[in-house]
Amino acid sequence: MFKQLCAVMMACAILSGCAGKSGSELYGEDGGWKDDVNIMDLKTTGLTDKLKATGYDVVYFKLDSSELNAEARANLAKQAVWLKDNPKALIVVEGNCDERGTTEYNLALGEHRANAARNYLMSNGIEAKRIRTISYGKDKPAALGSTEEAWAKNRNAASVAY
Protein backbone atom coordinates (compact mmCIF):
# COMPACT_ATOMS: atom_id res chain seq x y z
CA MET A 1 0.00 0.00 0.00
CA PHE A 2 2.78 2.40 0.99
CA LYS A 3 4.77 1.49 -2.08
CA GLN A 4 1.78 2.14 -4.31
CA LEU A 5 1.22 5.50 -2.71
CA CYS A 6 4.87 6.43 -3.24
CA ALA A 7 4.63 5.42 -6.84
CA VAL A 8 1.56 7.57 -7.37
CA MET A 9 3.21 10.53 -5.69
CA MET A 10 6.38 10.15 -7.75
CA ALA A 11 4.42 9.88 -10.96
CA CYS A 12 2.49 12.94 -10.00
CA ALA A 13 5.67 14.87 -9.17
CA ILE A 14 7.23 13.92 -12.49
CA LEU A 15 4.17 14.84 -14.52
CA SER A 16 3.48 18.17 -12.84
CA GLY A 17 7.02 19.10 -12.03
CA CYS A 18 6.07 20.48 -8.64
CA ALA A 19 6.19 17.79 -5.99
CA GLY A 20 5.13 19.92 -3.00
CA LYS A 21 1.72 20.96 -4.26
CA SER A 22 0.10 17.74 -5.36
CA GLY A 23 -3.61 17.85 -4.65
CA SER A 24 -3.40 20.66 -2.16
CA GLU A 25 -5.06 23.25 -4.35
CA LEU A 26 -8.19 21.18 -4.58
CA TYR A 27 -8.43 19.78 -1.08
CA GLY A 28 -6.66 22.22 1.21
CA GLU A 29 -3.69 21.60 3.46
CA ASP A 30 -4.92 18.25 4.73
CA GLY A 31 -5.17 16.87 1.26
CA GLY A 32 -8.05 14.67 0.22
CA TRP A 33 -6.88 11.61 2.07
CA LYS A 34 -7.67 12.49 5.64
CA ASP A 35 -10.39 10.14 6.80
CA ASP A 36 -10.64 10.12 10.58
CA VAL A 37 -14.34 11.07 10.53
CA ASN A 38 -16.09 8.71 12.87
CA ILE A 39 -19.75 8.10 12.13
CA MET A 40 -21.65 6.82 15.11
CA ASP A 41 -24.80 4.77 14.78
CA LEU A 42 -27.05 6.10 17.55
CA LYS A 43 -29.31 3.04 17.19
CA THR A 44 -32.31 5.16 18.06
CA THR A 45 -34.98 4.07 15.64
CA GLY A 46 -38.62 4.95 15.89
CA LEU A 47 -38.17 7.88 18.26
CA THR A 48 -41.31 9.58 17.00
CA ASP A 49 -43.49 6.57 17.77
CA LYS A 50 -41.74 5.86 21.06
CA LEU A 51 -42.44 9.30 22.50
CA LYS A 52 -45.98 9.18 21.16
CA ALA A 53 -46.54 5.82 22.83
CA THR A 54 -45.73 7.31 26.24
CA GLY A 55 -48.81 9.53 26.10
CA TYR A 56 -46.75 12.34 27.60
CA ASP A 57 -46.09 13.90 24.23
CA VAL A 58 -49.10 16.24 24.22
CA VAL A 59 -50.26 18.82 26.76
CA TYR A 60 -53.54 20.69 26.57
CA PHE A 61 -54.53 24.29 27.21
CA LYS A 62 -57.58 26.26 28.23
CA LEU A 63 -59.33 28.48 25.70
CA ASP A 64 -57.18 31.49 24.72
CA SER A 65 -54.45 30.49 27.17
CA SER A 66 -50.84 29.36 26.98
CA GLU A 67 -50.65 28.66 30.70
CA LEU A 68 -49.58 25.17 31.77
CA ASN A 69 -51.97 23.62 34.26
CA ALA A 70 -50.97 21.00 36.83
CA GLU A 71 -51.72 18.11 34.48
CA ALA A 72 -49.69 19.69 31.66
CA ARG A 73 -46.74 20.27 33.99
CA ALA A 74 -46.89 16.68 35.25
CA ASN A 75 -46.92 15.40 31.66
CA LEU A 76 -43.99 17.61 30.69
CA ALA A 77 -42.02 16.46 33.73
CA LYS A 78 -42.50 12.87 32.51
CA GLN A 79 -41.62 13.94 28.99
CA ALA A 80 -38.41 15.44 30.36
CA VAL A 81 -37.59 12.11 32.00
CA TRP A 82 -38.15 10.37 28.68
CA LEU A 83 -35.85 12.88 26.97
CA LYS A 84 -33.17 12.19 29.58
CA ASP A 85 -33.61 8.46 29.02
CA ASN A 86 -33.27 9.07 25.30
CA PRO A 87 -30.42 11.57 25.27
CA LYS A 88 -29.92 11.42 21.52
CA ALA A 89 -33.52 12.35 20.72
CA LEU A 90 -34.39 15.84 19.51
CA ILE A 91 -37.91 17.22 19.57
CA VAL A 92 -39.99 19.80 17.80
CA VAL A 93 -42.84 21.16 19.92
CA GLU A 94 -45.82 22.00 17.73
CA GLY A 95 -48.16 24.63 19.15
CA ASN A 96 -51.79 24.33 18.06
CA CYS A 97 -55.07 26.16 18.58
CA ASP A 98 -58.74 25.46 18.14
CA GLU A 99 -60.47 27.02 15.14
CA ARG A 100 -62.41 29.55 17.24
CA GLY A 101 -59.82 32.30 16.92
CA THR A 102 -58.46 34.44 14.09
CA THR A 103 -55.59 33.22 11.91
CA GLU A 104 -52.91 35.67 13.02
CA TYR A 105 -53.73 35.62 16.73
CA ASN A 106 -53.72 31.82 16.65
CA LEU A 107 -50.29 31.74 15.04
CA ALA A 108 -49.00 33.77 17.99
CA LEU A 109 -50.95 31.72 20.52
CA GLY A 110 -49.59 28.45 19.09
CA GLU A 111 -46.09 29.85 19.37
CA HIS A 112 -46.69 30.84 22.98
CA ARG A 113 -48.04 27.37 23.80
CA ALA A 114 -45.08 25.61 22.19
CA ASN A 115 -42.69 27.84 24.10
CA ALA A 116 -44.51 27.35 27.40
CA ALA A 117 -43.87 23.62 26.95
CA ARG A 118 -40.29 24.22 25.85
CA ASN A 119 -39.55 26.44 28.84
CA TYR A 120 -40.94 23.86 31.23
CA LEU A 121 -38.84 21.10 29.65
CA MET A 122 -35.78 23.35 29.97
CA SER A 123 -36.54 24.03 33.61
CA ASN A 124 -36.58 20.23 33.99
CA GLY A 125 -33.03 20.06 32.70
CA ILE A 126 -33.48 19.52 28.96
CA GLU A 127 -30.96 21.47 26.86
CA ALA A 128 -32.44 24.29 24.76
CA LYS A 129 -30.68 22.97 21.67
CA ARG A 130 -32.70 19.77 21.74
CA ILE A 131 -36.03 21.60 21.47
CA ARG A 132 -37.30 23.38 18.38
CA THR A 133 -40.73 25.03 18.33
CA ILE A 134 -43.22 25.71 15.55
CA SER A 135 -46.72 27.15 15.57
CA TYR A 136 -49.39 25.79 13.28
CA GLY A 137 -52.08 28.13 14.56
CA LYS A 138 -55.42 26.52 13.72
CA ASP A 139 -54.14 24.78 10.59
CA LYS A 140 -53.03 21.41 11.96
CA PRO A 141 -55.92 20.10 14.04
CA ALA A 142 -55.32 16.85 15.92
CA ALA A 143 -59.04 16.11 16.19
CA LEU A 144 -61.56 16.46 13.39
CA GLY A 145 -64.89 18.19 13.53
CA SER A 146 -66.24 21.45 14.92
CA THR A 147 -67.18 20.31 18.40
CA GLU A 148 -66.15 21.36 21.91
CA GLU A 149 -64.41 17.99 22.32
CA ALA A 150 -62.36 18.46 19.15
CA TRP A 151 -61.47 22.03 20.08
CA ALA A 152 -60.24 20.94 23.53
CA LYS A 153 -57.95 18.39 21.85
CA ASN A 154 -56.71 20.95 19.34
CA ARG A 155 -55.54 23.43 22.00
CA ASN A 156 -52.22 21.73 22.55
CA ALA A 157 -48.46 21.65 22.43
CA ALA A 158 -47.43 18.35 20.86
CA SER A 159 -43.82 17.17 21.03
CA VAL A 160 -42.58 15.15 18.09
CA ALA A 161 -39.31 13.29 18.64
CA TYR A 162 -36.90 12.48 15.85
Binding site: E104, L107, E111, H112, N115, A116, R118, N119, S135
Partner: peptide, 9 residues
Protein backbone atom coordinates in the same frame (compact mmCIF):
# COMPACT_ATOMS: atom_id res chain seq x y z
CA UNK B 1 -45.44 42.57 10.98
CA UNK B 2 -45.24 40.45 14.09
CA UNK B 3 -42.17 38.54 15.20
CA UNK B 4 -42.61 35.69 17.67
CA UNK B 5 -39.48 34.57 19.48
CA UNK B 6 -39.27 32.44 22.58
CA UNK B 7 -42.92 32.74 23.39
CA UNK B 8 -43.33 36.47 22.88
CA UNK B 9 -44.97 38.25 19.93
Amino acid sequence: MSLATRGNS
